[in-house]
Design a protein around this nucleic acid. Structure first.
Lengths: 194, 194
DNA sequence: CGTTTGCTTGAATTCTGTCAAAGCAGGTGG
DNA sequence: CCACCTGCTTTGACAGAATTCAAGCAAACG
């Protein structure tokens, strides 16, 4: 179960983990299984832990005052679950994090994550690398949102994350793109013609 | 000139800087003045340095294949200039960073920034805090882009950054919101009625 | 086998962009 | 000091794009 996490840390940090470090890491995380439709976080909760996805899939979304859902992020294997804002500021989250498949997680609390960063250099480097990657990905997404048409955003998504349409229902992909399911359906019909 | 930076680091890190540390920091940064309409970065450049804004204002934007500009970010005093993606991956930037006012910057290279993080703990903590804040702000912006109408995004912006409309022309605010200047003008007219 | 869930399609409506024109500063040079 | 630019905002008319509402259909699920 922990092998996927060790491999992830070694790849991201560029360092090898000693057996001792592996033991420390195992002590700070704990395993958690969630089935499809179960929640890791619900709106109003304070996000006091984050989780590494060993196997499975999830979505993070909000519900607006008209009752519509808006998917901010998906998560697949080797991605992380958690609401940055709530986690860092200890404010109630505006988001839900729901499993879309039966999922295996490795969970760590805020406090343990900080301790681990102080004691295991490879983990600190990993988090730094994640932060960078996240900054890049979110900047791209903002750029896409303000500068591309819905159709361009869709083809861009297909190039960047072709897995998404295979593992997530189309109406959720539409929600992620910020368009209605009907619009996405029509766009795909047009795109197939060309 | 450096006082604003020292104060910023001390506030963000929660640590006091020794005189020695202040000297080290001064040695790694250098001062640069840019006038209105001058560029800190142009499309195609690799972003090998970032800059702390001591005084002034700037915008970061791209130009699409129709020749339209799209503003991804603004920067004011105590904010930073730089393209995360180009800076971290050393790829050519898709963005321009242009001064909107005469601006004083403190510039640091990639290499020096890494060294400084290793030697001055307060600086490392500051960068970590910045990364967190950036992650929160960008997540909010993505959420706004996919879940709000143009009008909701506008009022949200006015609440979060009321300075923007005072220091930036309205057509740039429109570009930042991802709408046309005409639409923003009409929205403001409607909002004034209520 | 019935129910739920997701996908598609059509028609009406609302929103937004585009194009064009006009007005309104602030700044510059004569 | 005035006339003229130039950059920015406003307004109107029109076209195009996306949402909404409604209906029908297929596949998956319990």
């Amino acid at each position: 179960m922990y092998d996927a996490l060790f491999e992830y840390i070694e790849t991201r940090s560029g360092l090898r983990l000693t057996e001792e470090e592996q033991t420390v890491i195992e002590g700070k995380f704990h395993h958690k299984s969630l089935r499809r439709k179960q929640y890791f976080l619900q709106e109003g909760d304070i996000c006091k832990q984050i989780a590494f996805v060993v196997k499975g899939a999830a979505r993070m979304y909000s519900i607006d005052n008209k009752g519509h859902e808006h998917i901010v992020r998906f998560a697949l294997e080797t991605w992380w679950l958690g609401d940055h804002e709530s986690f860092n500021l200890l404010t109630p989250s505006r988001f839900h994090i729901e499993m879309l498949e039966d999922t295996d997680l490795l969970v760590i609390t805020t406090v343990n994550a900080h301790e681990l960063r102080d004691h295991v250099k490879a983990f600190d480097l990993t988090i730094k690398a994640m932060d960078k990657q996240l900054a890049i990905a979110t900047q791209k997404r903002i750029h896409a949102a303000i500068s591309m048409t819905a159709e361009e955003r869709y083809t861009d998504l297909m190039n960047t994350y072709p897995q998404f349409l295979q593992r997530f229902p189309q109406n959720m992909v539409a929600s992620y793109l910020g368009i209605s399911p009907e619009t996405l359906s029509r766009m795909r019909k047009n795109a197939a013609r060309n």
